[in-house]
Design a protein around this nucleic acid. Sequence first.
DNA 1: TAAATTGGCGCC
DNA 2: AAAGGGCGCCAATTTA
Length: 557
Amino acid sequence: MTGRWALAPVEGGGADVVPLGPDDLPSGPVRREPDLAEAVRSRPGVTRWVWRSTAEVYPRLLAAGVRVERCHDVEDAETLLLGHEGRSGEPRNAAAALGRLRGGPVPPDPPTRNADPSAQDPLFEAADPVDVPLADLLAVYAEQRRRLAATAHPDRMALLLAAESAGTLVAAEMNRTGLPWRADVHREVLRGLLGERYPGAGEPRRLAELADEVSAAFGRRVRPDLPADVVKAFAQAGVRVRSTRRWELSKLDHPAVPPLLEYKRLYRIWVAHGWSWLQDWVREGRFRPEFLPAGTVTGRWVTHGGGALQIPKVIRRAVIADPGWRLVVADADQMEPRVLAAISRDPAFMKVAGRESDLYQAVSERAFAGDRDRAKIAVLGAIYGQTSGDGLKNLAALRRRFPLAVAHVDEAARAGEEGRLVRTWLGRTCPPVGGQEEAEEAGIPLAEDDDELGPGRSTATTRARGRFARNFVVQGSAADWTFLLLAALRRRLRGLAAELVFFQHDEVIVHCPAGEAEQVTAAIRESSAEAARLTFGDTPVRFPFTTAVVECYADAK
DNA sequence: TAAATTGGCGCC
DNA sequence: AAAGGGCGCCAATTTA
């Protein structure tokens, strides 16, 4: 009952299961079990379940109260392996992987569905056309193990696959648990910001007032939610403005600007996190977005539904722990620069990142005469690829003191511009620019005709590809690390009532009884150290977290 | 008329 | 001071 087992659901609610030996082949007979959840529950000693897709299997287990320690998500692994092999455009579903292995048909991936809160009914979902029976799944898995051994750093790639699979478990568990959400508090916040709500059509009162103020300032009726109308109104008032972006408007000296900016801020809350959002996404005291691991090229997760990764600060007032419980909100401090230190192995930068105190302050003392703001601009500029303004001057100062760190991202940018593969620390791979469709699907900026630039000069799109790759190695390696962190934290929370309820790039929220808050805080600290050791090996770089134990999310910062 | 694109802004 | 990287979502507008 120990070791790895593979599992494939079958018609009628059952499953086929089989134990796997050290050679990745079955070490016993396939058993047909009548009940999927029972098949897993009755084998508590299994250390890793191999299955096609966590999203397919695990929600059913969780619904039956069954959790697993570890898994290998074959389709998730397929995505990462294809990427590593420079074949990211090929379908990643299990049936396609089988087709490539056997020379059979290679079905395309099913379209990614959009979550629609009014029409979610998983009971009536059609059978998945890309599903494969257990015997075929085993063949695909064994082949994946061979391909894994052939990667540039098999030990790192194995970690990446394990970490991503752990992420799929965490995501499924969070999807089920949901984020504690007080609808009554949310409504209070809305009333305070937006005023009375007019049932039926029309803006809430505060927005209507601000629209009137804008119109009064222009001397004619202007709809502030229509950029074209606003640009025209400014033109008629003798002010030329290229767009209605906030940073551009805020430079202007015109009486319409203050109410306009306030309107935009509140309008955004109204349409994105207002009463209809509450209606759509909050049920029984929980906000349940759908976390999708590996939703992006860089590895960052995305969510479907409710804009869960963009909850405005003011709305976080509604995230309140259950009575007697607390939220442990943990935020990694300057995660991406610390990751850059770890992957570049720049001695001076590692020294700076080896302290838990403010990294930007430490950088500023070495390169910017103590000016923290400039240090931060320079570091972020290096990571994001700043191309103009003071950023370049600051970047030069950064390069003098931390040459290897800057060279690391410069090299990634060059590789991206030249269409070479770019990898994160653990081996997640940024697709090269191949076919047009492929690149567009992956969101990679494409080269285009640009006759005005002579030979030897990059086009704007080439430079955009460079920035993409530059950021990829840092953001992606940071994602690598956070999944190891999540896996470690999940393991450490086992046995507690505490539950992971939220994850956002460099921030986690754990919901726990007040009495467990101290243990949870310690678990986060220990998980950070463990994840750093596993991911980057022997590195002096530290990854401190700011943790807050609060009843309300809004009080965490 | 439905699908795709655009402008804008929230979060990291 | 200037407008770099990654997303999702909404309404309006354009395209097919």
